[in-house]
Computed example of a mutant assay.
Amino acid sequence: MKQIKAFVHKNRVPDLIHSLEEAGFRKLSLFDVKGLLRAISTREQEYSIDLGDRVISEMQMELFCEDEEVSRAVEIFRRVGRTGRREAGWVYVASVEQSYAIGDPD
C-alpha cells in the first residue's frame, strides 16, 4: 500500500476531489496548511508573523491506495492540480507497512 501526499493550491481541490472519486479513489483526507508554494496572485499570500515570511493557504491532500494504482493517482494530481504556473505544488509517495480497518472485530 502507498500513501500519496500532495500539496496543492486551494482552488484546484474541488476538481481534484471530483477526478479522484471518479477514478475510484476513496481513501482521501484533506488538511488546510500554510506553505511556501508560489502564489498565483498577491491575494493568495499573507505574511506570517510566526514564520517571518510570506505564506499561502494551501491544501495537503493524502490518498492511500494499492501499489498498482499509484501511477494513475499521481497522474491525476499532476494533471488536474495544474494552475498554469511552472510550479503548482508537489506530490510525494511513501510506502505504508501495514493498515488496519477500525470497526467491530470479526
Rank of each mutant, 00 (worst) to 15 (best):
M1F: 07
M1Y: 07
M1H: 09
K2R: 12
K2P: 01
Q3E: 11
Q3N: 09
Q3I: 07
I4A: 02
K5P: 07
A6Q: 01
V8E: 01
V8S: 04
V8H: 01
K10F: 07
K10Y: 06
K10Q: 15
N11C: 13
N11Y: 08
N11S: 14
N11H: 10
N11P: 04
N11F: 08
R12C: 02
V13K: 01
V13A: 01
V13C: 04
V13Q: 00
V13R: 00
L16D: 00
I17F: 03
H18Y: 09
H18C: 05
H18R: 08
L20H: 02
L20E: 03
E21H: 10
E21F: 10
E22T: 09
E22I: 07
F25R: 00
R26I: 10
R26D: 12
R26P: 02
K27G: 15
L30P: 01
F31W: 11
F31G: 12
F31S: 15
D32I: 10
D32C: 11
K34E: 15
G35R: 02
L36H: 13
R38L: 14
R38M: 11
A39G: 06
A39K: 02
I40V: 14
I40Q: 06
I40T: 11
R43C: 14
E44L: 10
E44K: 00
E46C: 09
E46F: 08
E46I: 10
Y47F: 09
S48K: 05
I49T: 08
D50E: 13
D50C: 13
D50K: 15
L51I: 07
G52A: 07
D53M: 08
D53E: 14
R54C: 07
R54T: 09
I56E: 04
I56T: 02
E58F: 02
M59K: 11
Q60Y: 09
Q60D: 12
Q60R: 14
M61N: 04
M61D: 03
M61T: 03
L63E: 00
L63T: 01
F64N: 11
F64T: 09
F64K: 08
C65T: 06
C65V: 05
C65L: 03
D67M: 06
E68Q: 14
E68W: 11
E68M: 05
E69P: 03
V70I: 12
S71E: 13
S71M: 12
S71I: 08
S71H: 10
R72G: 10
A73M: 04
V74P: 02
E75P: 03
I76Q: 02
I76N: 03
V80G: 00
G81H: 01
R82K: 15
R82L: 07
G84A: 04
E87W: 05
A88L: 01
A88C: 10
A88K: 01
G89Y: 03
W90L: 14
V93N: 05
S95P: 07
V96M: 13
V96L: 12
Q98S: 15
Q98C: 12
Q98I: 09
S99M: 11
S99Q: 09
S99R: 06
S99A: 15
Y100P: 07
A101T: 10
I102T: 14
G103H: 02
G103P: 00
G103F: 04
G103C: 06
D104S: 13
D104P: 05
D104I: 12
P105T: 14
